[in-house]
Design a protein around this nucleic acid. Structure first.
Lengths: 163, 163
DNA sequence: GAACATGGCTTGCATGTTTAAGTAACGACG
DNA sequence: CGTCGTTACTTAAACATGCAAGCCATGTTC
């Protein structure tokens, strides 16, 4: 039962500001996509990931990892996208245990028309208000926190591009 | 229909890392609280806000704003906390339209015993991996993004301390 | 080649959140 | 005073999410 290492005033300041960011930035991006395209950020990221993948297809488990979501969540999300005609599913011919999610032509079109607005929002909210140097610092800061949260995770830049 | 201002490789890098942070940090803090205290981060923030308020009481709407949540969400959350005996509600004697949420003695005790673990987690995930200078930069960066997301919002340090 | 173990995905259930409708209290105007 | 409009909150229904159990295909062991 040791005396906890309380936060000082400056750290408290940082934490409150960061906490606000953690809530408001995702919600703002979600709102833009919901309003302009009728899809959630998670659904957009899912389709965007597929659009960058070879053959525009990917295994469910890989897709879930890329989008930082659980497998059941991804299963439901892809189910919704499938119902709207933007994705279809088929067993992996290589190994029937895997399921391939495939972006349809309509899905690719949807990503194409949704991307500009989303990128614009991201730029408006994140990059426009920061200097180049601050953006770089943000990368380094985020990497450090990510490593502290989950040491297993690969956070360096070896992830294939999505956006 | 103008050509969108796409993100360059460096910006993409920043965005992916930040996106990971936005998902994983809240979820890690939530997990710690759920595991060690059986409450969510939102519930903790609610009780912590009350514990710092005069009379350990606050109007629902003010509480919801402080915790960055909607009013219905706060209503449900306080309902759960009330059922567990940590909070009680009473109409504001000044104006019957407001409802005052009041932290009970048991609730105060709960915050007291939960706070050290939560602060420790916050320190481990956020402050330990950063230098003092980086923490300061993070404050400034978060403020700028918050201003871009919601210009109305008061993000400078004029908020009363909670944690 | 038949039983079993493994791993990937889906489904069902319990919980929490959002949106919208409903309730109650206050103030203003006639 | 009585009604109207506004404000603060709660409740109801639709929906999304995590967890645990089930299902199916594969590879292994004998």
């Amino acid at each position: 039962m040791e005396e906890p290492r309380w936060l000082d005033a400056e750290e408290l300041q940082t934490w409150y500001t960061l906490a606000g960011l953690l809530v408001r930035l995702p919600s703002a991006l979600d709102a833009q996509l919901q309003r302009d395209a009728g899809i959630s950020l998670f659904e957009y990221q899912t389709m965007a990931s597929l659009s960058e993948a070879p053959e525009r297809s990917m295994r469910m488990s890989h897709l879930a990892m890329l989008a930082e979501g659980s497998l059941p969540r991804m299963s439901q999300a892809v189910g919704r996208l499938e119902k709207r005609g933007w994705v279809r599913r088929t067993p992996d011919p290589t190994d029937g245990r895997f399921t391939l999610a495939i972006l349809t032509e309509a899905g690719w079109e949807k990503v194409r028309e949704t991307a500009p607005g989303h990128v614009e929002a991201t730029r408006t909210y994140v990059f426009d208000p920061l200097t180049r140097a601050q953006a770089r610092q943000l990368t380094e800061i985020s990497r450090r926190i990510l490593r502290a949260v989950d040491p297993e995770s690969r956070c360096p830049g070896e992830r294939p591009a999505i956006d």
